[in-house]
Amino acid sequence: MKMKSGKLTAVFLVSMFATVFLPLSFLTKVQAEVAKFAFNKLGSEKPYYISQNTNQPTPITQFKIQTLNQRGPIGDGGWNILPTDLNKGAKGRYIYLEYQGISGLPPVTSVDVKAYDTPQYNPPAGWSWDPSDLNAGAGGKYIYLAWKTGEVDKPPIINVLVIAGNQSSPPNIPGWIPIYQDLNQGAKGDYIWLYYSTTIPT
């Protein structure tokens, strides 16, 4: 049985720019909602990380997974990296989400997390993917990140957010769409929830 413990430990708001620490008074309305949620769960205004950009964000065009034997992440030229271990608390490999936005390429318009009982060697039909198991070294389900690009009836994805903690379902955060798949399913460790947003912070 998967055992979960511990408080919400980190909130990372990520888009196509650097991660910085900011006081609550400097945040946009959308970002302040995320920060307020984090503070309420932590019980005090402990530090959190939030990405901030004053220019028009570039839509995300691709993801990939970085899998390491030691704590990272390791810089990867041309890619931005979410500094949250997606295997947090599970004692498996260290796994990080990379993303990039390249002008002229079709934007990511759908993102999902797929869980299986056996390893997969091909992406789900109609999807792009990274073949890395998000539970690598930790047991549990075989979990993969998949996405679609350029769907004409859907807006581009601008931001992604990960919450790691003891929440057994993804909490509601205004302006964010959760993916209802625990990235640690079947393994010991935190519940890890991926969210995305198509909204440009204002």
Results as ranks from 00 to 15, higher is better:
106 P>V: 10
117 D>R: 00
128 S>L: 11
157 I>E: 07
131 P>R: 10
81 I>V: 12
108 V>K: 01
146 A>F: 01
133 D>V: 10
95 I>V: 15
157 I>Y: 10
141 K>V: 01
139 G>L: 08
124 P>S: 12
75 G>M: 08
151 E>A: 14
93 R>P: 00
83 P>T: 05
138 A>N: 05
82 L>P: 00
110 S>K: 13
159 N>I: 01
91 K>H: 14
98 E>T: 04
117 D>E: 02
145 L>I: 12
155 P>I: 12
114 K>W: 00
86 L>M: 12
146 A>Q: 14
87 N>H: 04
78 G>W: 12
85 D>L: 07
129 W>M: 09
103 S>N: 14
108 V>E: 01
94 Y>M: 04
158 I>D: 02
77 G>N: 14
134 L>D: 04
81 I>C: 10
109 T>P: 09
132 S>M: 09
94 Y>S: 06
126 G>L: 05
131 P>I: 08
152 V>K: 15
86 L>P: 03
152 V>P: 14
131 P>W: 02
158 I>L: 12
120 Q>E: 00
133 D>L: 05
80 N>E: 04
76 D>F: 07
124 P>H: 05
95 I>T: 13
134 L>F: 07
115 A>M: 07
140 G>D: 06
135 N>F: 11
80 N>I: 02
114 K>L: 05
127 W>H: 11
107 P>C: 06
142 Y>P: 03
139 G>C: 09
82 L>F: 03
84 T>V: 11
77 G>T: 15
89 G>I: 09
132 S>V: 11
76 D>A: 09
103 S>K: 15
93 R>S: 12
87 N>E: 03
90 A>L: 10
107 P>K: 03
124 P>V: 04
106 P>E: 15
155 P>W: 10
99 Y>E: 01
144 Y>V: 00
83 P>Y: 10
97 L>C: 11
137 G>A: 08
117 D>Y: 00
84 T>F: 00
144 Y>C: 00
112 D>W: 06
154 K>F: 14
131 P>C: 04
103 S>G: 08
144 Y>N: 00
89 G>E: 11
138 A>H: 03
131 P>L: 10
131 P>V: 03
153 D>P: 04
137 G>H: 08
88 K>G: 11
124 P>F: 06
123 P>A: 15
127 W>Y: 13
86 L>Q: 05
140 G>W: 03
77 G>F: 13
155 P>V: 13
109 T>K: 11
129 W>N: 08
148 K>G: 06
83 P>S: 05
138 A>G: 09
140 G>A: 05
111 V>G: 04
